[in-house]
Each structure stands twice: as structure tokens, then as C-alpha cells.
């Protein structure tokens, strides 16, 4: 009886097994849902890119639809440096958000004075707790993240996705 009752705790039956984008931890990366989708296409090709203003030359991050300096909408895609240095970092054993494995290592990265992207908060993957040190060099890596469906008339289109993080240069 107790087991039967537990099996009946379904919460929101109407949603069982349904993809809920409002609860998604990853971006909606496809062309149907944003105008900076080339960023994700470039990720798939192993490139770390962003937008550069044709008018004033400003390089923004994240990539934009208009330049945040001069509001021009004439932008190009350019590559960013793929290597950075760890300034400081934090390791989370307990309490990482659902969807992120422990230890969750997040670092404050610096890309150097010459980089248009000065600093970034980056996840460090493929790294054991206690392994990372201040001053370590890290490199950009990409990986696939769960796909999601989009309704296209009566069909369902599956959108494969990708994201990026950093790992130690050994």
C-alpha cells in the first residue's frame, strides 16, 4: 500500500516527461530562438567567438545584436583567445545546482591585457578537487549538452546543443 501511494506521487501529471524550457539550465541555441546563434555554430567548430563593431571597433562579450558602445548594428564575428590564467577559484562539493557534478569548480579567469575579453567566470572541467592552483593556465573546451525539441507545425525538430568550459593545461 505504501509503495502504491509513493508511485502515485506524480506531481504534475500533465507535464510528465515533457521538456520545460523555463527550467532548462542551458541556452536556447538555435536560430529560431536567438540572433546570436553563430556563436553556438562556432562552438561546434571548436571556435570561441564574439561580435566586433564595424563602426567603432569595440569587441563585446557576450556577442550582441547591436554594439553596446555606439549602438551600431553592423557587426562582424571575430575569434577570442582560448587560453587564460586562473586568478582565483572556488570548489563546491555540496550544493551544486542540479545538472552540475561535484566538485563544481568555478574560476575567475584573466585573458591578459591584450585580449578584448579581460576576465570571465569559467567552469573548470576534467579537474579533481585540490588539483587546480592560482596562476594555472587553462584552455577553452567544448562539450555537448542535452538536446531539446521544437514544435515545427505537426513535427518535432530536435535541437542538438553544445556549450563551453575550460580545463587545465597540463
Amino acid at each position: 500500500m505504501a509503495e502504491l501511494q509513493k508511485a502515485e506521487i506524480v506531481g504534475t501529471p500533465a507535464l510528465n516527461g515533457t521538456y520545460i524550457s523555463e527550467m532548462d539550465i542551458w541556452p536556447l541555441e538555435t536560430q529560431e530562438f536567438n540572433r546570436i546563434y553563430p556563436f553556438y555554430d562556432n562552438l561546434r567548430a571548436g571556435k570561441f567567438t564574439t561580435t566586433k563593431c564595424k563602426k567603432c571597433g569595440h569587441i563585446a562579450y557576450p556577442p550582441q545584436v547591436i554594439c553596446p558602445k555606439c549602438w551600431s548594428d553592423e557587426l562582424d564575428w571575430v575569434e577570442l583567445p582560448q587560453r587564460a590564467k586562473v586568478v582565483t577559484f572556488t570548489e563546491t562539493q555540496a550544493g551544486a545546482p542540479l545538472g552540475f557534478d561535484s566538485p563544481l569548480i568555478i574560476a575567475w579567469l584573466t585573458f591578459g591585457d591584450k585580449s578584448p575579453l579581460k576576465h570571465l567566470l569559467g567552469r573548470i572541467v576534467n579537474c579533481k578537487e585540490g588539483e587546480l592552483k592560482d596562476g594555472d593556465e587553462v584552455k577553452f573546451v567544448t562539450f555537448s549538452v542535452p538536446a531539446h525539441p521544437i514544435e515545427v507545425k505537426k513535427d518535432t525538430k530536435v535541437c542538438e546543443r553544445v556549450f563551453y568550459a575550460f580545463e587545465r593545461v597540463k
Binding site: T90, T92, I106
Partner: peptide
Amino acid sequence: DHDWDSAMGLGVPPPFFAMIAKM
């Protein structure tokens, strides 16, 4: 900033402020 910082795993504040404290 969901699609960028949160996708790096940044959720609850302690990790970020811990880095501020270390600095």
C-alpha cells in the same frame, strides 16, 4: 545571467563571494 554565467554553474552566491573574499 542565465545563458552565460549560470551555464557555467553559477547559481547560489557563496562561490562567487568566496572568490571576492580570497581576492
